[in-house]
Design a protein around this nucleic acid. Sequence first.
DNA 1: ATATATTGTGCGACTAGGAGT
DNA 2: CACTCCTAGTCGCACAATATA
Lengths: 353, 353
Amino acid sequence: MTRATRTSPTLANVAAAAGVSRQTVSNVINTPGRVAPETRSRVQAAIETLNYRPNRVARSLRTRTSRLLGYCVQPAPVGMLNPVLDRFVHAITESAAEHGFHVLLFTAPAGAPGLDRYAELLAQQAVDGFVLSDTVVGDPRHGWLTAHGVPFSAFGRTWTGEDQGAWVDVDGAAGIGQAVAHVHAAGHRRIGFLGWPDGSGVGDDRLAGYQAGCRRFGVAPLVVRTDGGIEAGRTAAGGLLDRPDPPSALVCVSDLAAHGALRAVTERGLRPGHDIAITGFDDTPSAALPGIELTSLSQPIEQVGRAVVRMVLGPLGAAGPPTPPAGAAPHQLFEPTLVIRSSSHPKDDGGST
Amino acid sequence: MTRATRTSPTLANVAAAAGVSRQTVSNVINTPGRVAPETRSRVQAAIETLNYRPNRVARSLRTRTSRLLGYCVQPAPVGMLNPVLDRFVHAITESAAEHGFHVLLFTAPAGAPGLDRYAELLAQQAVDGFVLSDTVVGDPRHGWLTAHGVPFSAFGRTWTGEDQGAWVDVDGAAGIGQAVAHVHAAGHRRIGFLGWPDGSGVGDDRLAGYQAGCRRFGVAPLVVRTDGGIEAGRTAAGGLLDRPDPPSALVCVSDLAAHGALRAVTERGLRPGHDIAITGFDDTPSAALPGIELTSLSQPIEQVGRAVVRMVLGPLGAAGPPTPPAGAAPHQLFEPTLVIRSSSHPKDDGGST
DNA sequence: ATATATTGTGCGACTAGGAGT
DNA sequence: CACTCCTAGTCGCACAATATA
């Protein structure tokens, strides 16, 4: 006589109900091909009536896989970039689910000290692998995870030259190239770039895209750096605008910097889109606000999330309908989409055609 | 001769190293008081040298607890409200970690169909409880979880009158009350309210706060509804502004609505903060943008997250340094903070004092 | 020899009860 | 009888090797 605790049915219960052995039930679930059709349907009926679901924990213990992917949520979200990561979290959760995986969230300090948390989760067999984001130049996680043979994939390159692990990223250089081409096509010939300080992989990549664009169209580069904040962008953009030969277009490394530039422009009585073109990067919600209407580069986050999950699941032999391509390329670069708004192409201009 | 697979040390390994039984090692970890100090330190030394960490999965199987909290990430984030949920996710992850728990992410369709996902996770013993957010009027999850005896707590009330389960929320009525008091103190006597359609718990709550404020200060209520979008807010606010007796202050149910109102105001050549006061709700990043400077109500999300986790962990007997208060109140209401910017109090006005 | 179903065993930790001092 | 420690059994599942047709 067992306690009347609300306990879920087990493999044994199903086996008894169907009049077969436990192993046969297990086979029906994991390798249906090895079970005779007649038996199979009988077992499946029993599974239905008992509403049986395999206990994930017991399965994990036996198979030594948790079917969980670790993802570290950043302690201090920077600026306005959150919307991107927000969508990313949703994207990886959804993609993981399609492969029978779930996402386990944890926090960790940035840099090497945070590695302990990764090690902890691994030692506890809590996760099968990791999805990384917010990667920085010289990120210690890639090397550590690679050295320990832990499956992972990252949203963002390491920029170190050494090729450690799988990554997916958005082609910032190509994106900025689009922006440069866009303003050049609108007739702008003096095109400035509002960038980040030297040394950030993402910033350098976007700068490179700007420089390539300048070469391509034969215009002189005009670069100024800021630390990324709105105020800094405003000051830096102001410096460009106050030159004797001010640019007529300002391509910005981020929406945040672009907001600062917009401010600097309007302060000087100029109208964005008419007197000067401004573009940003990330297409954050604030870019679409009325009165802002910032042209920006939208990142295909959902695609990135799907690709990242596919890559980390590859070595894990994900259990999905189709087997993921085993020899899939460990890297993938997506191109952002230029969303044109009136900051670079005023509605009442009727320019095209 | 075992395979040379990179396998973590187990209880048995530690026991062998320390020259004790497995059970003694288990006691050292879980009930140190029952082990003689001398033995205890010897075992702890072995744990250190082997760098042993209990296998979460094995422990879960035996104790029938996963030390995981389920949290459903919403499929389609609405408007600009994400930053709030972004911070919330981080907050619950951090709070859970303090109690030895982790957060497991999953997706589910809204409403009753999504309950299957909750049931699935429960049947698989994948989680010990749930944290809910994005609750709506008549949300089916509360009743279902309560009926099944599943521990949970919610960010957001059910608004159904029936008291189902623990919740934490932000006092929208009190927040809007602050906004009304603020503009009233600035001399405004004709105060309009830009609200959501009838029937949304959150919207009705905020409206009630507005109405209470009007009664308190003896001003006539002036309410108009929108569906929440920027464009709708712009149209609705425009309707108020074009009246023969337009309001001189506009308290908005959300930042999104406020952005629409700002647009309507500037379109009519009015200056926010000077000619008319505008306030929003949520203090989204876009509220702080230069050229916007929207006065708004900031939600104490970190506190909310901590409280939500405390509540769901209560019935689970969380294992933390201090035992959580067993008879903790199942409800908690936090007051938002009014962040005053120039949309209601222009810098160059020098109003106060 | 092929197809199908079965028994035994262990994953790694906790719970229960017993043995030694 | 306390105190300390240990042996045996269990959680639910899947792997391996075995029976039965």
